[in-house]
């Protein structure tokens, strides 16, 4: 994964509440047993005029020329709710988003973001709205993972992120690789637990 320490870019404002993973990537767009080839299907239900078609709806924010290439997305509360499909974050990442700012995320989606090198940034509703207004004007926004802060113009907002997620994002780490280094601890736990709870170990 590509490390993400800080990022300055324009942002796409999409302030709807409860944007669910079916809306982010409709099931009809998940055609292969693969993590790629999904960017075209991102927000397909909102982005294209016809179902299953590819004729862009000019009213949808992602289709507006001024937001092309933006790496930051601003969403409403409970972003990424619904089905656990990881295709949602794969589609967002493949499209080019590296960070999502929202008042809250669904827990599975949030974990999927970090595992795929996309920063889930939680800010208070009023901060998110202020940033959306700036994004609407085309002002750049800076996300500093190292400093745990978002800034735009002269304003800045701190955000909370756990150390593990922050480190994984900043170093672009593969979690499995990291955990396999603790293989001995895992084996030891399993061996002693099998004595306590043998029915667990089929």
């Amino acid at each position: 994964m590509i490390p993400l320490v800080s990022l300055t870019d324009i942002a796409v404002p999409l302030l709807r509440e409860n944007i669910d993973t079916d809306a982010i990537i409709p099931s009809r767009e998940m055609k292969t047993v693969s993590k790629t080839g999904l960017a075209d299907g991102l927000f397909a239900g909102w982005r294209y005029r016809t179902l299953g078609g590819r004729d862009p709806d000019p009213d949808f924010v992602l289709n507006q020329p001024r937001f092309q290439g933006a790496q930051i997305l601003i969403g409403g509360q409970n972003f990424g709710c619904g089905s656990s499909r990881e295709h949602a974050i794969w589609a967002l990442a493949e499209y080019g988003f590296r960070a999502i700012i929202a008042p809250s995320f669904s827990p599975i989606f949030r974990a999927n973001c970090v595992r795929n090198g996309v920063a889930p940034i939680v800010l208070a509703q009023d901060a998110v709205e202020a940033l959306a207004t700036l994004a609407e004007r085309g002002d750049p926004i800076t996300i500093d993972i190292a400093a745990r802060s978002v800034s735009a113009g002269s304003a800045s907002w701190p955000f909370a992120i756990d150390d593990e997620s922050r480190m994984m994002l900043m170093e672009g780490l593969d979690a499995i690789e990291l955990t396999l280094k603790r293989r001995a601890d895992i084996e030891a736990f399993r061996a002693s637990d099998a004595g306590r709870r043998p029915w667990v170990y089929l």
């Binding site: 993590k35 656990s84 499909r85 990881e86 974050i89 599975i108 989606f109 974990a111 999927n112 595992r115 795929n116 593990e164 979690a175 499995i176 990291l178 955990t179 396999l180 293989r183 895992i186 399993r190």
Partner: peptide, 18 residues
């Protein structure tokens, strides 16, 4: 519930970092 990448992690290690 988890995502596919976490499932992959659990397949390989029978653990999650969480």
């Amino acid at each position: 519930g988890i995502g596919s990448t976490e499932a992959e992690h659990a397949l390989a290690t029978m653990t999650l970092r969480i």
